[in-house]
Simulated assay, not measured.
Amino acid sequence: MKRKNIFLIFLCLALIIVPFIINKDGAYEGADAQADALIYEINPEYEPWAESLWEPPSGEVESFLFAAQAAVGAGFIGYFVGKKKGQVVKGNKSI
């Protein structure tokens, strides 16, 4: 079991690092920025019809909020899956 976990950790690290090695000069930006650029390229006179209710004071705060949202979502999913798995084991049911 330990070898399997170590292999999975190295696989995850490879999936994170390899794209940066393959595309060294790549512009890694969010889909929102790419969409904005494409919209203004298609229609330079475009004016957004809605504005954000609150603008984060910096990019770091925005990144933190995004990461926190992802962590809460992953925690919820992990809790739900673990609870269901525990119910299956207690009930002696097979998946």
Rank of each mutant, 00 (worst) to 15 (best):
2 K>I: 12
3 R>V: 11
4 K>D: 10
6 I>N: 08
8 L>W: 08
9 I>K: 06
9 I>M: 12
11 L>F: 11
13 L>H: 05
13 L>D: 08
15 L>D: 03
15 L>Q: 11
16 I>K: 06
17 I>V: 15
17 I>N: 08
17 I>W: 07
18 V>F: 05
19 P>W: 02
20 F>K: 10
23 N>L: 04
23 N>E: 05
25 D>A: 09
25 D>S: 10
26 G>Q: 04
28 Y>D: 03
29 E>P: 00
30 G>S: 10
30 G>T: 03
32 D>S: 12
32 D>H: 06
32 D>C: 07
34 Q>K: 13
36 D>W: 04
37 A>Y: 01
39 I>S: 02
39 I>E: 00
40 Y>G: 00
40 Y>A: 02
42 I>Q: 06
44 P>G: 02
44 P>F: 02
44 P>C: 03
44 P>E: 03
44 P>D: 01
45 E>Y: 04
45 E>S: 07
46 Y>V: 01
46 Y>D: 00
48 P>R: 03
54 W>V: 15
55 E>H: 12
56 P>K: 05
57 P>V: 10
57 P>E: 13
57 P>I: 12
57 P>C: 08
58 S>F: 08
58 S>D: 15
58 S>C: 14
59 G>T: 02
59 G>I: 03
62 E>T: 09
63 S>V: 13
63 S>M: 14
64 F>D: 10
66 F>L: 13
67 A>L: 12
70 A>Q: 13
71 A>D: 03
72 V>L: 14
72 V>F: 10
73 G>T: 05
74 A>N: 04
75 G>Y: 01
75 G>Q: 02
75 G>T: 02
75 G>H: 01
76 F>R: 03
78 G>W: 00
78 G>K: 02
79 Y>N: 03
80 F>C: 03
81 V>A: 04
81 V>M: 06
82 G>L: 06
83 K>E: 10
83 K>L: 13
84 K>I: 12
85 K>F: 10
87 Q>K: 13
88 V>R: 07
89 V>Q: 07
91 G>D: 07
92 N>F: 05
93 K>C: 03
95 I>G: 04
